[in-house]
């Protein structure tokens, strides 16, 4: 018979390891960004600005019919950027939009949104009536979420994380802030590996944690130990920066180079957004 205590600890262990694996995967996964595709070939600054424009358009439009071309464009761009469509749909179409559908479900009923009934049903003594305005609102909400998530995922999949951070400079974010965030991101992987190793080392010596108090003390000790090591490392990294001439105001490589293709892409994005806004007002 399985011990419930074992199950509980197994759950904690699996949660910690899954969280660390996710963190490492998130920092390592630049597989799509390294491929030679359409979006990968664009200057990250132009790409980010155009996607922001699409995002604002998707959020502002009040018609699912007008938003859906943007969603379709995301699918075409994903294909042109050599992204596996199944993975892309799994990331964008299912989890978050389905979750949002659950949130928006009550608003479809006449109790929350009164209006013209579209469909009614009886469960036991309860009568449920779905209304036209309720259904339209729910569809708009889900399409808007699916499109917004698709745009964000598409941008993050096709752009290296370091370049995305560098684009912040375009929006006037100070160089020192961008560098600090980049460094945090760079060391996340290192610390995730370190915590994982500590966990494995503790497990190899202690084995199965017998009591939750013992588990708590190990976790507390790990937090303190990780804190100590990160503090020590931050001092050493600062020394390494000083050693190579850092004096407080970092100067970094600006490797973005705009081409006519980037300007053309931006123009197309602006025209599409303007057209959708115009249609949104005239509908």
């Amino acid at each position: 018979m399985s011990n419930p205590l074992h199950k509980k600890h197994d759950f904690i262990e699996r949660s910690i390891l899954s969280a660390l694996a996710f963190l490492k995967d998130a920092t390592m996964s630049e597989e799509y960004a390294n491929r030679k595709g359409f979006l990968q070939s664009l200057d990250p600054r132009f790409k980010t600005i155009s996607f922001l424009a699409f995002l604002v358009t998707a959020v502002s439009l009040k018609s699912a019919v007008l938003i859906s071309p943007l969603y379709l464009s995301c699918l075409i761009l994903a294909l042109l950027s050599r992204i596996h469509l199944r993975n892309f749909l799994l990331r964008t179409l299912f989890f978050i939009p389905l979750f949002s559908l659950c949130i928006v479900l009550p608003t479809m009923f006449s109790v929350v949104t009164p209006g013209e009934p579209v469909w009614s049903f009886h469960v036991a003594w309860i009568t449920g009536i779905i209304t036209r305005p309720g259904l339209d609102g729910a569809v708009l909400f889900v399409v808007r979420i699916a499109t917004s998530v698709s745009l964000v995922v598409l941008l993050s999949l096709t752009t290296r994380h370091s370049e995305l951070l560098k684009v912040l400079r375009v929006f006037g974010v100070p160089q020192v802030f961008v560098m600090t965030v980049s460094m945090c991101y760079r060391y996340l992987y290192l610390f995730a590996t370190m915590v994982e190793n500590i966990f494995t080392a503790v497990k190899s010596r202690v084995g199965m944690v017998s009591h939750h108090r013992q588990g708590q003390s190990i976790v507390t000790w790990n937090i303190a130990n990780t804190w100590n090591r990160t503090t020590q490392m931050s001092e050493e990294v600062y020394m390494a920066m000083l050693s190579r001439g850092y004096t407080g105001e970092p100067r970094l490589l600006s490797k973005f180079h705009a081409t006519p293709k980037d300007w053309l892409w931006l123009l197309c994005a602006v025209v599409i957004c303007a057209f959708l806004f115009y249609r949104g007002h005239t509908l």
Binding site: R160, H161, S162, L165, S182, M183, Y185, R186, Y187, L190, M233, E236, V237, M239, A240, M241, L242, S243, R244, G245, Y246, T247, P250, R251, L252, L253, K255
Partner: peptide, 30 residues
């Protein structure tokens, strides 16, 4: 610092930039 360069024992400390290219460029740019 232009005359003296230290290669640290722990390379993870020395390589603090998001890419190898930027790490190599860091010193000269400063």
């Amino acid at each position: 610092r232009q005359r003296v360069g230290l290669v640290f024992q722990n390379a993870d400390i020395q390589l603090f930039c998001p890419s190898v290219r930027e790490d190599i460029a860091f010193g000269p740019l400063q």
